[in-house]
């Protein structure tokens, strides 16, 4: 196991847990301008702004719920994924001991906490090969509050509509309505249309890896993303569910083919403390570039 790789991954975890990525900071800053001063919404965004600065300055977790630990790794063909996973596990243990991660890995039957963030599903590894000769590692830390308010809808739905864009839009807005207050808003949505119950939600989560200010290459989905954000922000839910104009900072939608019988809309809700960062590793496993 490479010590350099472990050190690179500990630094990736530290930075992900303590520094909000620049695209998210810009979105939070922009939201501040839209809320009236003296309101609970403006207060919430002010505190969020302070928190972003404090976490960075003190190198301490933005949020105490450092969440599920999701690694998305692209490797050259023939790269040793088993060795990488062992290094990731070692890095997670170190980062937990240093207080960059909370002890979050709990046995689902006994309730026993492993104390080091390792166990079945911890960390959660997603490997992909590509034809490039470098290794890219993206890490997402996703807290339980926002994960709990994600949802999978099946269309048609008597209340929300049929298997068309309007039905999809209504399903997404229903999720936003139900999430209010609980997944710390303003939120960011990753949405997967189609697929099955696993691949649809995987697609939804992977949408969260896109830069917040990008534009969907599919013009139909780009329009859906914009419509959802505009309507959610007219709902009056606001930051923390306090009421206000900023309910979502973004919505990212992908699609997969489906079998004729199924039509899933899978929604992964991310809180404002949107902790994702990535690195490109050099031949010695040292960090050569940051992605966000």
């Amino acid at each position: 196991m490479s010590d350099t790789l472990i050190a690179s991954l500990v630094e990736l975890i530290r930075r992900t847990s303590t520094i909000l990525p620049a695209d998210v900071v810009r979105a939070v800053e922009a939201a501040k301008g839209t809320e009236e001063s003296g309101t609970n919404a403006a207060y919430a965004l002010d505190v969020i702004g302070c928190n972003i600065g404090l976490a960075k300055d003190k190198s301490q977790p933005l949020c105490q719920d450092t969440g599920s630990i999701l690694f998305y790794v692209h490797t050259p063909v023939g790269y040793d994924q088993i060795a990488f996973e062992e290094a990731a596990i070692a890095a997670v243990k170190q980062a937990t001991a240093k207080g960059y991660l909370r002890q979050n890995s709990v046995d689902s039957i006994t309730g026993a906490n492993t104390g080091d963030n390792v166990g079945p599903g911890f960390p959660d590894m997603h490997f992909h090969q590509w034809r490039r000769d470098e290794v890219e590692v993206v890490l997402m830390l996703k807290g339980g509050g926002c994960e709990n308010v994600g949802a999978t809808y099946t269309l048609p739905n008597p209340k929300l509509g049929g298997r068309d864009l309007k039905g999809v839009e209504n399903a997404i807005l229903d999720c936003v309505l139900n999430a209010q207050g609980q997944g710390c808003g303003p939120g960011i949505l990753g949405v997967g249309i189609g697929g099955d119950r696993v691949s649809g939600m995987a697609c939804a989560k992977s949408q969260l890896l896109r830069a917040l200010d990008d534009t969907n290459i599919d013009p139909v989905l780009a329009e859906l993303e914009a419509t959802v954000v505009r309507k959610a922000n007219q709902s009056g839910i606001g930051p923390m569910g306090f009421g206000g104009k900023t309910t979502l900072l973004g919505c990212k939608v992908g699609k997969l083919n489906r079998v004729p019988a199924s039509y899933f809309v899978s929604i992964s809700y991310m809180c404002w403390a949107f902790r994702r960062q990535g690195v490109v590793l050099g031949a010695d496993a040292g960090i050569t570039r940051w992605l966000y």
């Binding site: 969020i48 949020c63 105490q64 909370r102 309730g111 906490n113 403390a273």
Partner: peptide, 27 residues
């Protein structure tokens, strides 16, 4: 304010004890 763990932690000036640690630190 949810997610604002540092703003909150700054106002926690001392930790004076802990009970029911068998539930795991977060609980």
């Amino acid at each position: 304010i949810g997610g604002a763990a540092q703003v909150c932690a700054e106002r926690i000036t001392r930790v004076d004890g802990v009970d029911w640690m068998d539930l795991g630190s977060p609980e």
